[in-house]
């Protein structure tokens, strides 16, 4: 039987907006991170993809800028319960970055300037569902939101969209990242409310 909070009415989301279970809508863009915001100079910025055989693919900031950019408009879902509808980003699709990467790996471990890591299946980085984002709302991505560039994988909880992204290691076995080692779900699908281990 449901536990009712007597006298609680709450607010319903606007019609036409569907929220994943347990989420509420915010119009702000809250920030969540585990430590100080790293300051990453674009002149020294580099992004790498390293395969399971050790083959290394690297992009400098001008390299990234030279690649075709997309402008996805996506909904964000944070495990701390807020969702934000209709955010617009600019960035390079992982399909583009992975196009010349030969790999048999099934998993990816993403790492960031500042030491953050997060894991996800490699398939979730393909199919037009993931980007290395460098602009937000038409402007350069601010450091507190992950600038100069962050991973954007909006179909998973936002902790998977690693800020200050530095590289992706492709692995044949799944390896937990920072929050995944601290009790959070390995996959993190908001529509299945996979917040914590065992959900």
């Amino acid at each position: 039987m449901a536990v009712i909070s007597r006298g609680f009415h709450g607010r319903r989301p606007e019609p036409g907006r569907t929220l994943p279970p347990g989420q509420y809508e915010t119009r702000d863009f809250p920030v969540l991170s585990a430590g100080p915001t790293p300051r990453v100079d674009r002149d020294r910025w580099q992004f790498t993809i390293t395969t399971e055989t050790g083959a290394r693919h690297a992009w400098s900031w001008p390299d990234l800028m030279a690649l075709p950019s997309e402008s996805p408009t996506v909904d964000l879902h944070c495990v701390t319960k807020w969702s934000k509808f209709g955010t617009t980003w600019g960035g390079v699709s992982l399909d583009t970055l992975l196009a010349d990467v030969e790999t048999e790996a099934g998993y990816a471990l993403v790492d960031s300037y500042g030491g953050y890591t997060t894991n996800l299946p490699l398939a979730d980085l393909r199919g037009g569902r993931a980007w290395i984002a460098h602009t937000y709302d038409g402007a350069d991505l601010a450091p507190e939101h992950g600038g100069p560039a962050r991973l954007l994988v909006p179909h998973l909880y936002l902790w998977k969209s690693a800020k200050w992204v530095r590289g992706i290691r492709l692995l044949t076995r799944d390896e937990p990242g920072f929050w995944e080692s601290a009790g959070y779900h390995s996959y993190g699908d908001p529509w299945r409310e996979q917040r914590y281990q065992g959900d």
Partner: peptide
């Protein structure tokens, strides 16, 4: 960080004004 504290020894928790 500017005072010399190593970033790895600084743990943060933030809350937005939202919600």
């Amino acid at each position: 960080v500017a005072l010399g504290h190593h970033p790895a020894r600084i743990r943060t928790e933030r809350f937005g004004p939202s919600g």
